[in-house]
């Protein structure tokens, strides 16, 4: 599987949880830490299992998630 990188603009996250709900593989969850606004932030539990479908980013109301995928040559 090609490499996928999911990055979070942590300070934009408001902890709504819509990304957690959207991931078809259940790979996202709230982390232990909060951001400066006090919202719980989200992390990717198992990077290796992520297919890069980007449904989390599609549902994120705060444009806080970027999904990048390695393009095979």
């Amino acid at each position: 599987m090609s490499k996928v990188v999911v990055s979070f603009r942590k300070e934009n996250c408001k902890g709504c949880g819509l990304c957690i709900n959207a991931c078809p593989k259940g790979l996202l969850d709230f982390s232990e830490s909060t951001n400066n606004a006090g919202y719980p932030t989200v992390y990717l539990k198992e990077e290796e299992s992520c297919t890069g479908c980007a449904l989390c980013a599609v549902m994120c109301p705060d444009v806080a998630i970027t999904v990048e995928k390695e393009v095979s040559a």
Partner: peptide
């Protein structure tokens, strides 16, 4: 790396004032 989904150029870097989960942002 190819961006599958991220911030489009036609949006600024400003943080939305919308409530958590409000779909205005989407």
């Amino acid at each position: 790396m190819k961006v599958i989904s991220g911030k489009p150029e036609s949006l600024t870097d400003k943080k939305y004032h919308y409530c958590p989960g409000c779909m205005h942002g989407v």
